[in-house]
Amino acid sequence: MTPVPTSPGGTARSRVRGGPAVPHPRARPRSRGAAAWTPWLYLAPALVVLGALLVYPVGQLGLISLLEYTQAQVSGGEPTSFRGVGNYAELFADAQFWQVLLATVGFAAACVVSTLAVGCALAVLLTRVRAVPRLALMLAALGAWATPAVTGSTVWLLLFDPDFGPVNRVLGLGDHSWTYGRYSAFFLVLLEVVWCSFPFVMVTVYAGIRAVPSEVLEAAALDGASQWRIWRSVLAPMLRPILVVVTIQSIIWDFKVFTQIYVMTGGGGIAGQNLVLNVYAYQKAFAASEYSLGSAIGVVMLVILLAITLVYLRLLRAQGEEL
């Protein structure tokens, strides 16, 4: 497939041995006569695709959020009319919205932290075992990752079912219901979310650790540093570019979690106690084709996530990390 020697990790590792082991703080600017339009040429295909299929729809989203736009308008049954910030006012006036927003932020934060913790811990574990257990764990994780979300949620629900599930039997919990209490239901969903999203973190971070020059780790080990210290002061800083990507992705995914909540808590839990923003948007807007309200919720989500991402990147930059 490739004409290049592919001794695993060969290129990356050999380069690092010769080069600086610590990430270089600044990518070198390139001018050397490169025509200014060259990067744009390279970017052109991506920009065309993203412009047409992402920027344009997102722009439409903003526009729709200011209109009265339901299926009746879409089908041409009724004229489209301008509502200004009416949809936003409607949204912000709904006490439930704020409650749901708070729950979403809390739940997403818990999911992100747990996923990253489990993923990173297992990545470190992977580096300390031989091929067979490693392959076993890797395949199990990949299987979890590949399972369609709706099936994964159903299976977890079956496993924790008070009447028919094996988990209560093994734990001796009798017919304890996991989905009745608010936090217990959130916890169950969190388990499933972690189950299906940690593999992404684990595989990525594991690959990152493999690329760290072994001398660095050996030196640290000789100093008698504990596993936690090695992670904290050697690995984590070196893995930062990878951790940035997985963290941002996890935030985005977990903030938008839908299927797991929808399936596992029966559309938002007992009396709506487990609603998160995406499920709320579905119930309030999309199921009834209230696209303008749904778009307003979408814009709000976009703003929140963008703010979180920017703050996060700003923090990184403060630590000398360059995008």
């Binding site: 439409q60 209109l67 736009y69 879409v74 089908s75 041409g76 049954g77 489209t80």
Partner: peptide
């Protein structure tokens, strides 16, 4: 520019 609609008469 305007959001899509369709002529569904």
């Amino acid at each position: 520019c305007a959001p899509g609609t369709s002529d569904n008469s």
